[in-house]
């Protein structure tokens, strides 16, 4: 038995999968890939899968974290490839490692927000706040927020800037010291 933490990306169509849907998609993918997980005991055994800080419905991410307990002492090499062959479009496992930090240690996120305005100019001074950088992209603006506390919801930030359409993407998970969270 061995704990394993996967880093995966959730982009494209997979952005529209809810947290619970994503958990079930992974459970099935492990089963299809023939990677046995440890099951809970009790009347209704189910595999123990958890997502450390699930991203909100509609948000994309390159740094989602999935914790499982493998039933056998699998080596981690090859796990990602097997899983990726079994995952639907938009979900891709990037790495598999022993979890280092506890879920509670995940404190900050690097976030990208894309903002699109239909024929109106945004109040650009709003984009200039602490820790943020912005640039023009095709049809809109791209805002990068470094070390945003996990308690803040990027949706609220995006909507406060009154765009006609926005996209949020998680780039990186950070611990209390601002170091990469793994």
């Amino acid at each position: 038995m061995r704990k394993c933490r996967f880093v995966y990306s959730k982009t494209g169509k997979a952005r529209y999968l809810s947290h619970l849907d994503t958990m079930e998609v992974f459970r099935r993918a492990f089963s299809r890939a023939g990677i046995a997980l440890k099951y809970s005991e009790g009347f209704n055994p189910h595999p123990i899968i958890s997502i450390v800080l699930p991203c909100p419905l509609g948000h994309a991410s390159y740094c989602e974290l999935l914790d499982v307990t493998l039933a056998d002492d699998f080596g981690f090499s090859g796990l990602c490839e097997r899983l990726n062959n079994a995952l639907p479009s938009g979900l891709t496992v990037l790495s598999a490692n022993l979890p280092i930090k506890k879920p509670g240690d995940l404190r900050y996120l690097d976030i990208k927000i894309e903002l699109f305005y239909d024929g109106k100019t945004p109040r650009l001074e709003l984009l200039d706040f602490a820790g943020a950088t912005w640039s023009r992209i095709d049809g809109g603006y791209e805002l990068t927020l470094n070390a945003l506390p996990t308690k803040l919801n990027p949706t609220h930030i995006a909507e406060a800037l009154e765009p006609d359409f926005w996209r949020v993407t998680r780039l990186q998970t950070l611990d209390a010291d601002g170091a990469a969270y793994r």
Binding site: A14, A29, R32, G58, L87, G90, F165, R167
Partner: peptide
Amino acid sequence: LERILQRVTKPARYIGGEH
């Protein structure tokens, strides 16, 4: 389509891409 999907309930049922 992205704009629409951002506003509707259970958008996962309108995207395909399943295994």
